[in-house]
Amino acid sequence: MSVARFWRKQINRYNIVGTHCKTCDTHYYPPRNVCPKCRRDGDIEAYKFAGPGNVVTYTIIHTAAEGFEMQAPYALAIIELDEGPRFTSQVVCDPKEVSIGMRVKPVFRKLGESGDKGMIYYGTKYVPDNDRN
């Protein structure tokens, strides 16, 4: 991913910052600038989520995506934030630990890098919230 393309959404990745539609009180993460429910009647504002959530579903990826080879096998999950929205993230732990419905909390990690010379991309991943499982 190009430098500018990553940087543009950096604040949404460093912290779980999405959007909220004041018209229908729906939260969005990843952020949306148009509320799909209200469309032009929507009133969108930035919204910082608390962070914790649940695993909706997951997989253990053995054949890694390009750039993720060193991490294989890794757990990829759809996570539902306590405020409602769902998004895709890695759950960083022993893959055997992951289960549907488990509580997870955010951590700050490297998302990737553009080879040895390029940018390092940082952002949020998830880990099991062992105090709440």
Binding site: Q71, V92, V107, F108, R109, K110, I120, Y122, K125
Partner: peptide, 16 residues
């Protein structure tokens, strides 16, 4: 460190 941890991620966790 984990595979996706470095000085920056550790610094952020300590800072938070």
């Amino acid at each position: 460190p984990d595979l996706d941890e470095d000085t920056a991620t550790i610094a952020v966790e300590a800072a938070r």
